[in-house]
Deep mutational scan, measured.
Amino acid sequence: RKEMTAACTPRRRIINLTSVLSLQEEINEQGHEVLREMLHNHSFVGCVNPQWALAQHQTKLYLLNTTKLSEELFYQILIYDFANFGVLRLSEPAPLFDLAMLALDSPESGWTEEDGPKEGLAEYIVEFLKKKAEMLADYFSLEIDEEGNLIGLPLLIDNYVPPLEGLPIFILRLATEVNWDEEKECFESLSKECAMFYSIRKQYISEESTLSGQQSEVPGSIPNSWKWTVEHIVYKALRSHILPPKHFTEDGNILQLANLPDLYKVFERC
């Protein structure tokens, strides 16, 4: 597991931080080997919608929660590849102030007048994250320049770009939802926020969305749709870069829909 690298990086740093090793061990302890084997050997059937997909393993048909699986995938990559990410360069710098204002204007932020003026909160978020810029760049390849612009994001899987519609809320939550006081809790909560931002979430995906850094293989055609990215990038990574937690067998994120021999018997009677 320590050699797990989802995106190509030129050289690998050895990380011996106790906090990170502890988080890696927790993933191992909570892992479910049968689910790992199923995901490793599954045959992708198709997307139901951005949140759900169908896959077959041996004779069984499964309904998989793409949102939760991708979130767990990105969390584990962030923990196992800690401080070893490439950088996704933004085509132009994104001012943190503008991103924070967009987030505060969104109902998702939960902002009320009692929280104070949005401009003041946005300025605080910019200054707060600028103070964390060195650590964010060093460990997470999340790059913020001296003017308070976001200029780079971590490359977690080759050819995958997170849904940038979720970027404003991500920046807001970096400042408000991460435990910045304790090292282990900081790395864990920061990785979880980043994983949620990178995950496939239906509120940020339309039929026209593209999450891939590449064009489709047909010359002159439109960019790959999110469905292509889910199948050929995300579920491909799920084959080798995730140890599913045991609770996925109990919380409805992986559901067995049918045993195909039983279905064949039904059709034979028709």
Rank of each mutant, 00 (worst) to 15 (best):
R1C: 13
K2T: 13
K2W: 14
E3H: 13
M4T: 04
M4V: 08
M4G: 11
T5R: 12
T5N: 08
A6W: 15
A7S: 11
C8G: 05
P10L: 12
I14Y: 12
L17D: 07
L17G: 10
T18A: 06
S19H: 13
S19A: 06
L21H: 12
L23E: 15
Q24W: 14
E25C: 12
E26H: 11
N28I: 12
N28T: 13
N28G: 09
Q30K: 05
E33S: 13
H42E: 09
V45Q: 05
G46M: 02
N49S: 11
N49P: 01
P50I: 06
P50D: 09
W52I: 05
L54F: 03
Q56V: 03
Q56C: 12
Q56G: 03
Q58N: 07
L61D: 00
L61H: 00
I77E: 15
Y80Q: 03
A83W: 10
L88H: 07
R89G: 14
L90T: 02
S91C: 10
A94Q: 03
P95T: 08
P95V: 04
F97A: 03
L99T: 02
L99E: 00
A100C: 02
M101F: 12
L102S: 09
L104A: 01
L104S: 00
D105H: 05
D105N: 02
S106I: 02
P107F: 14
S109K: 01
G110R: 01
P117D: 07
P117T: 09
P117R: 15
E119P: 03
E119L: 07
A122F: 00
A122Y: 01
Y139D: 05
F140C: 10
F140W: 11
F140E: 01
S141N: 10
L142T: 04
E143T: 10
I144P: 00
G148C: 08
N149V: 07
G152W: 01
G152P: 00
L153V: 06
L153Y: 01
L155K: 05
I157W: 08
D158W: 04
N159Q: 06
Y160P: 00
V161C: 04
L164S: 04
L164E: 03
E165I: 03
E165L: 05
G166P: 13
G166V: 09
P168K: 03
L172H: 01
L172P: 00
A175H: 01
E177F: 15
E177M: 14
E177A: 03
V178Y: 00
N179F: 07
K184G: 04
C186S: 02
S191R: 14
K192H: 10
C194Y: 07
M196N: 05
M196G: 08
M196S: 07
F197D: 00
R201H: 13
R201Q: 14
R201F: 12
Y204E: 08
S206N: 09
T210E: 05
G213H: 07
S221E: 11
S221I: 09
P223K: 08
P223G: 03
N224H: 10
S225G: 07
W228N: 07
V230K: 05
V230S: 09
H232I: 13
I233S: 11
Y235N: 07
Y235I: 14
Y235S: 11
S240L: 08
S240K: 06
H241A: 10
L243V: 06
P244C: 11
P244Q: 14
P245Q: 10
K246D: 14
K246Y: 14
F248E: 12
P261L: 13
V266M: 15
F267Y: 08
E268Q: 12
E268V: 12
